[in-house]
Amino acid sequence: MFTHRLNPAILLIIMLGIGLQITFARSFLTNVAIVIIGLSYLLYCKISIKLISIMILSAFPVALGSWWSFIAFGTSDVWHVGWIYASRVYAYLFLGSILTLTVPIKDILLSLEKHLKLSSTFVYGILAAFNLVSRIKTQYKIIRYSATMRGTEYHLWNPGLYLRIIIVALNWSGDLAEAMTSQGFTEGGARSSIYHDNLPFWQWLLSFVLILIYFFFSFIVRPW
């Protein structure tokens, strides 16, 4: 079952290859096609309906705003344009979610390291930082509390807020990097790896075919 899933590296190529084109395409129907294909893949990967629904709802305000702003401020065929840009929001969303919802972060990075030459410094640096997310959230609260306790407040435009963030980032990145170095992690050095994944040739082919088909329909056929 798992072997029929697409490799994360392929998903990223599809995502970027089609994503960059969407920006220049002006078609409601191809956007809908992306949504349908993306949704089918998510269902095939047994992603919970609840998560998919949350995702769809979360993008609704932006899609609505896009649609509405063209109806309000558009200069040409406002209805068509409104629908193109509203559906585009969802096309992007599903295009990204076939990668972000179906593969764990670690596998995405390791696959990119193996197949797309992402350096191990980035792979393990990012993983190390991601492990600290909940501590970083706590730290952000401490930063805010330290100010309220002193009768003041940090706002988005206070450079002092960012100084505090930078100090934490400096200390913590230093600690982690020292630890990793002492554990033998060598920037640019050779490593062995137990990560193995399936990337048969047909998946490369599939990504190129999908990108080409999208190009053909969006820029040559140009449906509504």
Binding site: I126, A129, W172, E187
Partner: peptide, 9 residues
């Protein structure tokens, strides 16, 4: 790796 972690944080 320190730079990467720094920016990621």
């Amino acid at each position: 790796v320190k730079d990467v972690i720094f920016l990621a944080i």
